[in-house]
Nucleic acid binder design. Structure first.
Lengths: 335, 335
DNA sequence: CGATGATTGTTAAACGATTGCACACCATGG
DNA sequence: CCATGGTGTGCAATCGTTTAACAATCATCG
């Protein structure tokens, strides 16, 4: 069995209270000799305080939770995680992560959160898995909550917006400006099933509309969810009777697959088919040609993470805040 | 404040004991009417049991912990996570993840584990971050522990081995059999700093040695840690006076970058330079040519995850077990 | 020399749930 | 009519830690 404070106390010849005073780091005067005896006893037994008991009593866990969609290794997620871990360290918090890659996992994650696993939460999951209603039941616990999301968000939490749509319009207008008229959109699956266009898809349709380009339903295809299906989808598109002369992909990774597919089909990028992605990941710099893309101007997430810790440190509830992270179109060789 | 069982009890006009009996799912007879009153009261207040209090009393958390190295999106990690989550659901456990991408994070993770955040742990982190000693201090808590790792592991935990080295030997022998003599090794950084060759690097050196191929220190380079540095490293290699005629990359992602670099340098794969990777990820199927690789034969991780749940369900301590997951060389177009 | 205060340690009451045990109630049967 | 047993509910101890309040000791000082 794990050693308890009681056992440490016996070994050191003091009361459990003294053990707690020494080890919990509160500023309570304890004689140097006593302190040392406790420390020795604790390390001899390999004692670590039981966090469940501690959180129960203190009514805080000193943990924050990162609710993260798909482990899929988007570098931007990695950076977010890194910044969160670092700032948490600095404030004496630990970080635990809950993975949410389906609606079932979202419900499980919410249960864990409502059980009180952490004092605050940073949510980086799209609305397709974690609904606004579920989010609401997290916020209802009055736990400090920061959400990175473009869809609507329940009241009471901080929110981080990325004005993707505008930057996507700009990208597609750029393609139109080059005289391209058969511009395909390579979409993530969920975006196609939302009823009306939003986000990246909305940017695409808006740009076409604004310049009087005939929309063609057949040019809007799913496949941006992973590299392999993106490759396949583009290969299929190029075999149609009226193939596209440009591809706007909802993710950079899909865009890179598109470049491969185009070249494997014996066509040139950008002469025959231009490609633009979304995300501005580093990998876009080593493709040939380099990938045009839209993405956030700022690369670190300290501003986002700070929202959370501001709330955790505040004495009384803070008003809800919103951060807008500017996006821009980055033209490179593929368009 | 979050509602407690006491408040639910008052609202339902029963004792907290009854509330607990109704909501904790233990098989305790409660009259249907009472049960319903409790359930109504709980849902009206939005009550969720405080997990800290529950685990303190029950002496189990009903949680398992996944300790995961780099969020870097290796698909094989994704599959592991998925299988763990699924089996956990089936057994009534939740999953929390601790991210370990540096030694500092490893120490933080161990602290959290020793604090008792979970009943069992599945460790998928290389020894370069999480040392055997740190692992030992997890095992010392007698918490069921499963470790995926080829280096030595402290006694008392289950271990999952991947005989990479043998499969890597086979791959490099295949290259030698084609008459290639200047075979480069594109390594992950940590592997180069271990003193003596292990794992993939050992496979490489062994194969060269076994066939009397002169080793050339200049052909062993770092760069397999991410796609961009792999591209850069290979580009540099190809510009040397005596460039390689084959590249064995420690990861598939690096190998794919190598293919790009080779083609961008105006050379052909595999005629001028052959490429072999490690991991057997799906993306290798959409490169041109398709990527030769070595990787695990089995793709799911249910066998690994079962080790953990066997331990969690066992009445008394189980003897340590070991799983060996066979690896094989998969020849495709790039070699 | 007694009051005062500083210093250091202990006592005991929480925190919020779970659960062994006792108890109250009621129907049944001898 | 009382013993018996089955049902349903409550009492109170418990998990391991924190922390307010108090007690003991000793030096200091008027």
């Amino acid at each position: 069995m794990r050693p308890t404070a009681k056992q440490v106390a016996e070994l050191a010849g003091v009361s459990v209270a003294t053990v707690s005073y020494v080890l919990s780091g509160r500023d309570r005067r304890v004689a140097a000799g006593t302190r040392q005896r406790v420390i020795d006893a604790a390390s001899r037994l390999g004692y670590t305080p039981n966090q469940a008991a501690r959180s129960l009593r203190r009514r805080r866990t000193q943990r924050v939770c990162l609710v993260q969609g798909s482990f899929g290794g988007v570098p931007t997620d990695e950076r977010l995680a890194r910044d969160l871990h670092e700032m948490a360290d600095g404030h004496g918090y630990s970080v635990v992560t809950l993975a949410v890659y389906s609606e079932a996992r979202a419900m499980a994650a919410v249960d864990v959160l409502r059980g009180g696993i952490a004092d605050g939460v940073l949510v980086n999951v799209g609305g397709e898995h974690l609904t606004e209603e579920l989010l609401g039941s997290i916020v209802a616990t009055r736990m400090p909550t920061v959400v990175i999301r473009n869809e609507s968000v329940p009241p009471g939490c901080d929110v981080v917006r990325a004005p993707e749509t505008g930057a996507c319009v700009e990208a597609v207008e750029h393609l139109i400006g080059q005289g391209r008229r058969r511009i395909a959109f390579l979409s993530e699956r969920y975006e196609l099933y939302l009823g009306r266009p939003t986000g990246r898809l909305l940017g695409y349709t808006t740009a076409l509309d604004r310049h009087g380009v005939d929309p063609d339903r057949r040019l809007i295809v799913a496949g941006a969810d992973d590299r392999v299906s993106a490759y396949q989808a583009v290969t299929d598109l190029l075999r149609t009777p009226e193939p596209p002369d440009a591809i706007f992909a909802a993710t950079d990774r899909a865009a890179i697959s598109a470049i491969w597919a185009i070249r494997d089909a014996g066509l040139r990028v950008p002469e025959d088919v231009a490609v633009v992605g979304v995300g501005n990941i580093d990998e876009g710099l080593i493709t040939n040609p380099q990938l045009s893309t839209v993405g956030p101007i700022r690369h670190d997430y300290t501003d986002v993470v700070r929202l959370l810790f501001d709330r955790l440190q505040a004495e009384e509830p803070l008003p809800a805040r919103e951060i807008v992270r500017a996006w821009a179109f980055v033209r490179r060789g593929s368009s």
